[in-house]
Structure formats: structure tokens, C-alpha cells
């Protein structure tokens, strides 16, 4: 038996093949990012003729200068930041408000509210009834539509509740009760300060989702001044919205075309930059979040 095992592929070979394969995969993941970065710093003409494939050709920062001239992008940035920050703060706060009562085993409404929340995880009215609701609430084309509908998530409340149950000892609650601390005080002075790690996880989930989503904005917003960045990105990247060229001579038109091509690359970079910069720092919280979520099942 033993000799049979040893006639198999040697461990060294396996390790070597593993290194080769994983390096190839990592390069494949990396390549599109490098290409976009290089193209964003390249001459528009070179990009248009497919000359850029790995490194910048005819280095220039005109693509990035164009971003600052295109005021819509700045509007988008500001709006996205606003929706992200306000939405995240309120959403985490809501999760805390929901999680604490449900973590109390002696709470008489616990079972009822748990079921009420659980149902929303498995059944929803769907797109059209939600649309009709938002319409009748008069939320269409307001900033609130980007914040309110997604504010409370049953799943986040359950994750938060599990965290409280697992990490905050019951004795702490009993001792505070002895000291005459009521539920409001206990939540704000003890539960919330002790739950910072899980609040960081939930905040990240919400913030990343909010920054990256476009669907809600696409159906509910009409006013361009309210658009988040993703909608402007969609216009420039996917809908070929042309900058008005009717009043220009041919050279100028050509110039514009090149600039627009460049703008696509520089906007991808600019639009993804905030999360990419934050990513190395927030990554460990995300990993933690995956584990918390999976424990819950």
C-alpha cells in the first residue's frame, strides 16, 4: 500500500503546479484592472485604435482632467456619498433598535416580531407593488427614496441579535437592572458601545451595497441633480451618451470623441477608487461578517 502511495505524483510537483495555476488565476483577476488603469493614462487616439493593452501609450492625465470638467460626475459623487452616509448610519441604528429587544429572552413580543421579520426574508410583494407604494407615498424623485426603503433588513437584525446573545453576558444586564438602569439606557450605554465590531460589519455591508447599486435610482429618480454616481457611470460606460457635437468643426469633434473614450476609463477608476482605497482596511471586517453570517445560517 505504502509504496503505491509513493508512486503517485510527488508533493513537490503538486506544490509547483499549484503555484503556477494560482499565479495564472491571480494574473487573470489583475489584468482587467491593469488594462483599465493603463488606458486611463493613455493618449485617446492610441486607445481608440486598440494600441493599449498593458502599459500606458502616450502618457497623459487628460482623462482625469475631463472628470473635473464634467460637472455631472461631481454631482454624482456628492449624491452617492450622501446616500451612503445617511443610509448607513440610520440603517445600523435601526438594526440596533430591532436587535436588542429580540435578544431579550423575557421580551413578551419576541416570537411575534421574529416571525414578522422572518417572513420578509422569504416573501416580498415584488417590484410592481413596491413601485405603486413608493408612488403613492410621494417618494418618487426625492432623496428619501434612496434611503428609506432599504433601511431595515431582517437579516441584519438577526445577525446583530446573535452577536448580542453571544458576546454580552447576561450578568451585565442583571447587574444594570440592580442599578436601576432602564432598557433605553442599557441599549445606548451598554449594548451599542459593546457592539462596535458587529456594527462595523453591518455598516460596511450597507455602505458597499449603497455605493454600488443603481437599480433603485434608475426606477425612482428622474431629476439628474439627485442621481448617484452609478447612474452617471452607466450613461458614460454603457449608454454611449454623446456630448453635444453639433456646433463643432471636425477636428474638435474628433478631439471630443477621444476625450469621451478616455473618460470611460478614468471614470471606472474614479468611481471604484473610494472602495478600492478603503478595501485593504475593511477587508478583515468583511471576512468576519461572512463568518458571522454563516454561523447564523
Amino acid at each position: 500500500m505504502i509504496s503505491k502511495h509513493n508512486t503517485g505524483i510527488s508533493d513537490k510537483t503538486v506544490y509547483f503546479i499549484n503555484y503556477v495555476l494560482i499565479t495564472i488565476f491571480t494574473l487573470i483577476v489583475l489584468y482587467p484592472v491593469i488594462f483599465v488603469l493603463s488606458a486611463s493614462f493613455s493618449d485617446g487616439n492610441a486607445v481608440m485604435h486598440g494600441k493599449v493593452w498593458l502599459y500606458p501609450v502616450g502618457f497623459t492625465t487628460r482623462g482625469y482632467e475631463a472628470i473635473f470638467k464634467y460637472s455631472a460626475i461631481m454631482t454624482g459623487y456628492a449624491n452617492s456619498l450622501y446616500y451612503m452616509i445617511v443610509g448607513t448610519v440610520l440603517s445600523v441604528f435601526m438594526s440596533a433598535l430591532g436587535a436588542y429587544p429580540l435578544s431579550r429572552k423575557d421580551f413578551s413580543g419576541k416570537k411575534f416580531f421574529m416571525i414578522l421579520l422572518l417572513i420578509t426574508m422569504f416573501f416580498s410583494g415584488g417590484l410592481i407593488p413596491s413601485y405603486l407604494l413608493i408612488k403613492s407615498l410621494g417618494l418618487i424623485n426625492t432623496r428619501w427614496v434612496m434611503i428609506l426603503p432599504g433601511l431595515v433588513s431582517a437579516y441584519n437584525i438577526f445577525v446583530f441579535r446573535t452577536y448580542i446573545n453571544n458576546t454580552i453576558p447576561l450578568e451585565l444586564f442583571e447587574a444594570s437592572r440592580m442599578d436601576g438602569i432602564n432598557d433605553f439606557q442599557y441599549l445606548f450605554r451598554i449594548v451599542i458601545p459593546l457592539s462596535k465590531p458587529i456594527m462595523a460589519v453591518l455598516a460596511l455591508w450597507h455602505a458597499v451595497g449603497s455605493w454600488n447599486s443603481y437599480f433603485t435610482a434608475m426606477i425612482y429618480l428622474r431629476d439628474r441633480n439627485l442621481f448617484p454616481l452609478q447612474l452617471f457611470l452607466r450613461e458614460v460606460l454603457l449608454q454611449n451618451v454623446d456630448i453635444d457635437v453639433s456646433m463643432m468643426d471636425i477636428e474638435e469633434v474628433n478631439e471630443r470623441r477621444q476625450l469621451q473614450q478616455l473618460l470611460r476609463y478614468s471614470m471606472i477608476v474614479a468611481g471604484s477608487l473610494p472602495l478600492m482605497i478603503a478595501y485593504p482596511f475593511i477587508q478583515k471586517y468583511f471576512v468576519k461578517g461572512v463568518m458571522v453570517g454563516s454561523l447564523k445560517g
Binding site: 429587544p101 413580543g109 410583494g125 415584488g126 410592481i128 407604494l133 428609506l148
Partner: peptide, 30 residues
């Protein structure tokens, strides 16, 4: 009466759930 504080706390997120989840479920009748 016994848990009034807890009820107040939980009714804040629950009211959002009722508006944005349960009213559309009611609307499913269309």
C-alpha cells in the same frame, strides 16, 4: 405594560418593515 420600553424600541424598525414590506404584500392582490 410590562415591556413598554422594548416595544417602543422595536416598533421603530418594525414600522418601516410594515410600510415597505407588508403594504406591498397587501398590494399583491392586483
Amino acid at each position: 405594560v410590562k415591556d413598554w420600553q422594548l416595544f417602543i424600541l422595536i416598533m421603530i424598525p418594525i414600522s418601516f418593515v410594515i410600510v415597505f414590506h407588508y403594504i406591498p404584500i397587501y398590494g399583491v392582490q392586483i
